[in-house]
Design a protein around this nucleic acid. Structure first.
Length: 837
RNA sequence: GGGGGAGUGGCGAAAUGGCAGACGCGCAUGCCUUAGGAGCAUGUGUCUUAACAGACGUGCGGGUUCGAAUCCCGCCUUCCCCA
């Protein structure tokens, strides 16, 4: 691009406003950097914990994982969030808008393995790059509160909280089947397995038996379902509810003591009213009783089936398209309600992770059971009759309520009542009890990786599992470790780390080599922003009280069932441990949509569209505004290079109009012109304030574009007063400031103001000044627009109708018609309903 | 299979019961310019018409209403989440 005329350096407005000579073309590169440096030097975005007369406002954007460069997707997430925080500051809130780095995690380690980089150096180089790019974006972050989770000063407190949780039984170690990613060589939480694939790398996840650490999030399952006090998108709340997956039902035991002495198969059902229709029981292939119940003559088939089932993924197993398969164990169990002996089968459509891992098969009232029963020739017995049922065989399973039949003493009862009565009987006889199950599992926090927070546990041959004493924290992650091809964590082979002494008995002992899931870091980081330098505590309770719950949390919806749920759990656990005194960490939340480009999600894994060249060509303000102008932020948008010129042109017009010569304007101005500019000004403020409040940046910018045109027209006409003109320009700059902070600041200074525009208040508006003296009424005949009439704003109904009928085109359509009805909506419309005479 | 978004000009989108297409891109014409990937002005949903004016038009099909992009019922497509 050709270098355009540059504003003369050092020109000041000391001669006074209105004396500006040719201001030069809008060249953002000339001043954006200057303001970024000055804002930071002046500390204008550093938040004090309390400011007299101002309410605190904690604006929080989800912090990034530093992996290379900030891409356009990052800008899309952070620039609008920054604009909103700036807007709140100008609205008079004491705003704290921090930023930091979620810097533990696999990519650093993979870079180390693949390119021989040092994980720490790689990470910190990326952080430096991110810091630079965040500043170039023109963000209003309070860098004095920055945090880096891979810093021992931070992760020490992950370890500290782990120990507090451990003491209270909220952290525990258990041997069990864990999700294992063969590529990343680590276990994953349930939330990190998507469609049976590793969320990070897409490898098929397998089950592997390992001792693992967990946080007992399920203890809070019911409280996590309560979301009345948080103002979050309903979509996110629904996702959390579904993920927690509470279902109420009954567990009932089916006796198998003939085959496995003393054993019962515990089944869980939400439809105990159908228990008399149970004609078989199905075990998940992983069920512990499978081995004991399999009869010798079935051993071979069962073994083959188990092998086959172990290869199927969970999606395949539960897909409704896939044929249900199963095998008989040869064993039978007894239905306690009617004493019937029914066969025990193994079927892989039953998951060991849901309920008890065993279900009673009621083919008449469950579609999956019906398919299964037909295939294996099992009895189908109706026990909840549809209305008017004639006793015939059902074609499809009857799932809705009905009347109990074939249900012993409960026959004739509506099934809703039967549900309760049968559950009562089961409880009275000790066959089972009412119970609740959840889809939510405890949070698996162990990772067999190096680049994370070491779990502060020591294993001693004599004392067993011993927590590291708090005085010995942090357990430091060793530097400069060796990675080997076997994929095992270097910590397992690092003698200095591994070998220690038992804190209890002093004998040689070994450290836990697993590290914490990085979601532990992000579960409480907002508390540390509120209290960045608390000394000997994780945070200062008083400072936290001043800022948290977070006023508005802004980030991606992809964290709905991971980070956002973990953070809520962590908050509740900390509350019960006495660290905080509120129930929820994030009072309000909005999720920005996804920015896509040519049908590809712009993310760290694809599409290297980098902002740097765009910033170089157009400036940060243009890129910020363009991203906000694409469409509604929460719905995402599609990137294309072509539209950015529109924003660049608009800012160019702002640049020109703000610096127009106005000495030719008069003292008082023309009444009509004054009034017209005043109206446009106040109407613009109303639109912008409403839209900014609601994150509707696109329509805010549209309103400012229109206002810019109004100002240009007003100046061209030359009829407004100099005073009104200057006020109009100020208003434009003040509204543009959150969106395009550099140009607004530069022009604020050039038009003779002192002090940063970003510390100025949002302009006021007066609704009465927006109203017009005359209004345009739309006139419809039979609902079709036939004309418009200009009438006084305070016209009454009769007057409005008369004016409407008088307009010539309307009169033409009324000719030869009989009036049937009149609709009058004041200020908007007259609709005359007619029919042929 | 279940849950939740979304579907409007050539394109990004406005309008949430009252003039569909604000604002912007692109395109067209004109001005300015040695030049234009600069700037400015005007125009731009489709069709009929010389014009006035009219018809049609918000994924498809029905419904409610004086009036529907907007509310209701059914369907299609697509994206996200879950299974």
């Amino acid at each position: 691009m050709r270098k355009l005329t540059v504003a003369r350096k050092g020109r000041t407005d000391s001669e006074g406003r209105g004396s500006a000579s040719v201001p030069g073309r809008y060249t953002p590169a000339d001043f954006e950097k200057k303001w970024q440096v000055k804002w930071e030097a002046d500390g204008i975005y550093e938040a004090a914990d309390h400011v007299e007369g101002k309410e605190n406002y904690f604006a929080l954007s989800m912090f990034p994982y530093p992996s290379g460069d900030l891409h356009i997707g990052h800008w899309y997430a952070y620039a609008p969030a920054d604009a909103h925080a700036r807007f709140k500051r100008m609205q008079g809130y004491n705003v704290m808008n921090p930023q930091g780095f979620d810097s533990f995690g696999l990519p650093a380690e993979n870079a180390a393995i693949e390119h021989g980089a040092d994980a720490r150096e790689w990470t910190y180089a990326n952080i430096d790059n991110y810091r630079r790019q965040f500043r170039e974006m023109g963000t209003s972050y309070d860098w004095s509160r920055e945090l880096v989770t891979s810093d021992p000063k931070y992760y020490k407190w992950n370890q500290y909280f782990f120990l507090q949780f451990y003491k209270k039984g909220l952290a525990y170690r258990e041997h069990g089947l864990a999700n294992w990613c063969p590529k990343d060589q680590t276990t994953l939480a349930n939330e990190q397995v998507k469609n049976g694939l590793c969320e990070r790398c897409g490898t098929i996840v397998v089950k592997r038996a390992l001792p693992q650490w967990f946080f007992a999030i399920t203890k809070y399952a019911d409280e996590l379902l309560e979301m009345d006090q948080i103002d979050w998108p309903e979509k996110i709340k629904t996702m959390q509810r579904n993920w927690i997956g509470r279902s109420t039902g009954t567990t009932v035991g089916f006796d198998v003591s003939d085959f496995a002495p003393g054993e019962k198969i515990e089944t869980f059902t939400t439809r105990i009213d159908t228990v008399y229709g149970a004609t078989f029981v199905v075990l998940a292939p992983e069920h512990p009783l499978v081995e004991k119940l399999t009869q010798p003559e079935q051993q071979e088939v069962v073994d083959a089936y188990l092998l086959q089932a172990s290869r199927a993924t969970e999606i395949e197993r539960t897909s409704t398209e896939r044929e249900k398969t199963g095998v008989e164990t040869g064993a039978f169990c007894t239905n306690p309600l009617n004493g019937e002996r029914i066969p025990v089968l193994i079927g892989d459509y039953v998951l060991s992770t849901y309920g008890t891992g065993a279900v009673m098969g009621v083919p008449a009232h469950d579609p999956r059971d019906l398919v299964f029963a037909r295939k294996y020739g099992l009895e189908v017995r109706v026990v909840v009759a549809p209305p008017g049922w004639d006793g015939a065989e059902l074609e499809t399973a009857w799932v809705p309520p009905g009347t109990q039949v074939n249900s012993g003493e409960f026959d004739g009862m509506p099934s809703e009542e039967g549900m309760e009565a049968i559950a009562d009987k089961i409880e009275e006889n000790g066959w089972g009890k009412r119970s609740v199950t959840y889809h939510l599992r405890d949070w698996l926090i162990s990772r067999q990786r190096y680049w994370g927070t070491p779990i502060p546990i020591i294993y001693c041959d004599d004392c067993g599992t011993v927590p590291v004493p708090e005085r010995d924290l942090p357990v430091l992650l060793p530097d400069h470790v060796e990675f080997e091809a076997d994929g095992r964590s270097p910590l397992t082979k690092h003698p200095d780390f591994l070998n220690t002494t038992c804190p209890d008995c002093g004998k040689p002992a070994r450290r836990e080599t697993d590290t914490l899931d990085t979601f532990v870091c992000s579960a409480w980081y907002h508390l540390r922003y509120a209290s960045p330098n608390p000394g000997e505590d994780p945070f200062d309770a008083e400072q936290v009280r001043a800022w948290v719950p977070v006023s508005y949390y802004m980030g991606g919806a992809e964290h709905a069932v991971m980070h956002l749920l973990y953070a809520r759990f962590f908050n509740k656990a900390l509350r019960d441990l006495g660290y905080v005194d509120f129930d929820e960490p994030y009072a309000r939340f909005i999720s920005q949509g996804v920015l896509i480009s040519e049908h590809a999600k712009i993310s760290k894994r694809s599409n290297p569209l980098t902002p740097d060249p765009i910033v170089k060509k157009h400036g940060a303000d243009t890129l910020r505004c363009y991203l906000m102008f694409l469409g509604p932020w929460d719905q995402g948008g599609g990137w294309s290079d072509s539209g950015i010129n529109g924003i660049r042109r608009w800012l160019g017009r702002v640049w020109d109009v703000a610096q127009r010569e106005y000495s030719a304007l008069t003292e008082t101005g023309d009444d009509g012109a004054e009034r017209s500019l005043e109206r446009a000004s106040h109407a613009t403020t109303q639109r912008v304030v409403t839209d900014m409040e609601a994150f509707k940046f696109n329509t805010s910018i549209a309103a400012l574009m229109e206002y810019t045109t109004e100002l240009i027209r007003a100046h061209d006409a030359g009829k407004v007063s100099a005073r009104s003109w200057r006020a109009g320009v100020d208003r434009l700059l003040l509204h543009a400031a959150p969106l395009a902070p550099h140009i607004a600041e530069e022009l604020w200074q050039r038009t003779g103001h002192s002090g940063s525009i970003h510390l100025e208040p949002v302009p006021e508006f007066d609704e009465s000044l927006i109203a017009t003296e005359t209004i345009t009424l739309v006139v419809q005949v039979n609902g079709k627009v036939r004309g418009q009439v200009e009438v006084p704003a305070d016209i009454d109904e009769d007057g409005a109708i008369a004016a409407a009928k008088a307009s010539s085109n309307v009169a033409r359509h009324l000719d030869g018609m009989t009036e049937v009805k009149l609709i009058y909506v004041p200020g908007r419309i007259v609709n005359i309903v007619v029919r042929p005479t």
